[in-house]
Computed example of a mutant assay.
Amino acid sequence: MSIKAADVKALRDQTGAGMMDCKKALTEANGDFEKAIEVLRKKGQKLSAKRADREAKEGVVLAKVSEDGSKGIVVKLSCETDFVAKNEDFINLTDSFAELALKEFPKDKEALLALPYDGTTVGEKIVEQVGVIGEKVELADYEKLEAPQVEAYIHMGNKAGVLVGLNKASEEYSEAGKNVAMQVAAMKPLALDEEGVDSSVVEKEIEIGKEIARKEGKPEEMLERIAMGKLNKFFKENTLLNQTYVKDGKMSVQQYLDSVDSGLTITDFKHIKLG
């Protein structure tokens, strides 16, 4: 049967598939628009299964904050190549998922994948896009954050996204929040403070400290004290509030926040990056 160019264009506009793929799908579906969409989705499912073991280390990370500034989300849509990651359609698709996540604020990644999207679900749309793009595509990560004030930062051309929550809200804190978010992107802290570090990590660091001191010939009775000193250094290097503030090496992040307003601090942070 004859397939109208307008129908091919309409299918392309809705799915993002190539013109020839859209024409083939419409031909296979005898001109039925909905069946043609299903044909494209099945193609995506087949290709998705074939490429399941591929590595998807490229992609787009976006962070967004609600209008009232009390909620934020960060999402990562992964693909196989930098070429696809830089494609405007792929960036726009990630942005639409981020907007939906901010609006619905799902509890986790699985809940986000199940949300209705464009007549299907986010998860099914992603599978469809595998057929459109020809690469493995996956919603690799999603985080959300609530606080009196949330600030977001997108690093290095959509290669990392950060959210930080402040314990107090004011327009005057916006710059400080963004500065700390940039600190997170640059210094990659493991936790907010000492209490946020897993006990197994603390125990391992103490044992490493003792072993180093022992090999250096330090007396056995001094090993614990030396190890605790090394642990404090570990906390300073790896916990956000204790880290040296990158824009002023004379103070910690918490001291910087106190300089903005006494008692101002970070309640939590989220950091998602490619790789």
Rank of each mutant, 00 (worst) to 15 (best):
L40R: 07
K42S: 13
K43M: 11
K43N: 15
K43G: 15
G44S: 07
Q45M: 15
Q45S: 05
L47N: 12
S48I: 01
A49E: 15
A49C: 04
D53W: 08
E58F: 01
E58L: 03
G59S: 10
A63C: 08
K64Y: 06
S66W: 01
D68V: 04
K71V: 01
G72A: 05
K76T: 04
L77F: 08
S78P: 05
C79N: 05
C79G: 06
T81M: 03
F83C: 12
F83N: 07
E88M: 04
E88D: 14
F90T: 00
I91E: 11
I91V: 15
I91W: 04
D95L: 13
E99M: 10
E99C: 06
L102K: 06
E104H: 08
F105Q: 02
P106S: 02
A111P: 08
L112P: 13
Y117I: 07
G119C: 08
I126V: 13
Q129G: 00
I133E: 06
G134M: 04
E135L: 04
K136S: 10
V137A: 03
E138C: 12
E138N: 09
E138A: 14
L139I: 05
L139T: 03
Y142V: 00
K144P: 08
L145N: 08
L145H: 09
E146K: 14
A147H: 12
P148W: 11
P148A: 02
I154L: 00
H155S: 05
G157V: 07
G157W: 14
K159F: 09
V162L: 00
L163A: 11
L163G: 12
G165S: 11
G165T: 06
S170D: 15
